[in-house]
Design a binder for these strands. Structure first.
Lengths: 158, 158
DNA sequence: AGAATCACTGAACAAGCTGTACAGCGGGAG
DNA sequence: CTCCCGCTGTACAGCTTGTTCAGTGATTCT
């Protein structure tokens, strides 16, 4: 398990310039094309790289407001609540957590007013005891994995 | 602003099968290749599609533990704290928020024990008054945008 | 109504990439 | 010492890409 330096460079390269293709990768990294191809296949097999799907920006889609909702769930209602949340398009992800709440979910909305509608839709469900919402204002660190990839590559490589 | 049905179908298709290419997309959607190409270009121009970079799974990289930390910041220390958090590879994203805390960040770690190390590294910073961490256990709704895309397409289309 | 603008279509072309296969070489493990 | 695995360099056919063009239909402006 883990990745080595070449894997790391490959991921970094593809992250920065996703359109370049295998051949160009091999040229940039100074290795044979077959190597790049084999590395990519293995990374995908091992699940390190999940895919190359389009990264959609909810804001550009008309949902510029992001919020995080902490939900407290009634005993035994977990599964129902999950199923409920899964039906709400504006719920982008959901985790069950330790600590104060029982669930944490990421929500987007068209506006602050619209956020109220979404939250209503989320919490109007019997299994949910309480909900605390935090609206995201700035996003100084956008979702990133590259630093982690570098660290994983360094750690592995020795 | 917004997307229409064809845009939505295109995003959905590319999300499910990212490797198929423009020509195959045009065949599947029953439109001309030029149309697909033009749509993709526009979607990228408008920022709806940010890119096609590899989606890396931190768990497969050796970081299977995810946690969310709510940080309370000392007045005026915001910028310093942001810069600090940006230097920690295990901090995958960070938002400033309204409500209880001042910041919410997503953290990964190699294990629960390792999480302690990471959190220590995060909170050992003068500007941070208090930190509350919630460890993510299950992830019933993985990050997804497709339902939102469909809704946006429907809304736009009429 | 007439004209202009825009998007989509279908076609064409050269250029380049992909998938795949093969033999050779070197290092690490048993 | 030998086996296994991964990297290299090469080769080939097939296909895709980027680009351009003219034609058509719908929508909008005059």
């Amino acid at each position: 398990m883990g990745i080595d330096g070449l894997d790391g460079q490959l991921i970094e390269l593809l992250t920065n310039e996703p359109r370049i293709g295998v051949l160009e990768c091999s040229r940039r990294l100074g290795v044979a094309r077959g190597t790049v191809q084999a590395r990519l296949d293995r990374l995908r097999e091992r699940g390190v790289i999940r895919g190359f799907g389009p990264q959609v920006d909810p804001a550009a889609l008309g949902y510029p407001v992001t919020a995080f909702a902490t939900l407290e769930i009634k005993q035994g209602q977990g599964p129902d609540v999950r199923a409920h949340l899964a039906t709400v398009p504006e719920v982008l992800e959901m985790h069950t957590t330790t600590g104060q709440g029982d669930m944490l979910c990421r929500i987007v909305a068209r506006s602050n007013a619209d956020l109220q509608r979404v939250i209503d839709r989320v919490v109007v469900f019997e299994g949910i005891v309480r909900a605390a919402t935090a609206i995201a204002m700035e996003n100084p660190v956008t979702y990133r994995v590259l630093p982690l990839v570098r660290q994983a590559a360094d750690t592995s490589g020795g």
